[in-house]
Amino acid sequence: MADTPYLLEARNLCQHFASGRGGKRLTVKAVDDVSFGVRPAEIFGLVGESGCGKTTTGRTIIRLYDPTSGTVTFDGREISGGMTRGLRRYLTDNIAMIFQDPIESLNPRMTVEEIVGEGLTIRGVKDKAEVRRRVVEMLGKVGLTNEHATRYPHEFSGGQRQRIGIARAIITHPKMIIADEPVSALDVSVQAQVINLLNDLKEEMGLTILFIAHNLSVVKYFSDRIGVMYYGHLVEIARGDDLYAKPLHPYTRALLSAIPEPNPLTEKTRRRIDYDPERDHKEDYFSGNPVMTEIEPEHFVYCTPSELELYRDQVRGKADA
């Protein structure tokens, strides 16, 4: 697994947004020097708090935004360069996206059939009966029936709408799906429906998924590997269990320590760890250039050379113990 080449790979991806003009010009580094790769049929979780740049990363990869710098390759082909008709086609054929808000992400004036079928019609499937047949097939996959096809989005519950959004994403059989917080706007009782559905579809269609979320429990459950983002930087990448067992970057530790677990025995005595970049890093973290470094197989940390030694020791210490 570890030596399988990446299907999607981002290298030093930056997305800076500028606002204001002249002297008041402000640049927000929403995504700054982010590098990671996703292997075929793998679920890669991108986790972080609001404003950390995880959503922007996903949107930049699928080219809702044009990257400021850095490259993204998919299946060996660069998809971050100048936008051409051919590249647009390649992108939309291979990568689809699932959005967060089940109300906002469906056009209120289109029927479910039109919404789900749009991917087909814009690819030139003219035959109405054929579109209909494939829409119904997709609806069946997400647990809806053909009688739902003529309905408008507002008639559905949140979980059902999210499943419609999933049907829309998979109808063109993309290789990869970027799922941007697909469950966080849903009620607790229906989140599991959507997670199970994504899991089933992944198995059935061999999907590769970039799963973006802020809920670390969900990300850990759903993902093979996890990347942790903080203020535009990807600070740590590891397999879920490794990340949980031996978090290295101080932010990852803080994040893990903050997750409330539904267990009153442990929860009432849980010790929270704070993250204070000034205190938790040495001077050179800010002045020097920290880079993404592989500490142990499949475990990367964003660190400076001096921190690298420290982390190596920690990993060795854990292994000994």
Partner: peptide, 17 residues
């Protein structure tokens, strides 16, 4: 229905709305 940090098995989804 919701996973915790140790959950590995398939989630018990609540059907319907």
């Amino acid at each position: 229905s919701m996973p915790d940090l140790q959950t590995k098995e398939r989630l018990q989804a609540i059907p319907g709305a």
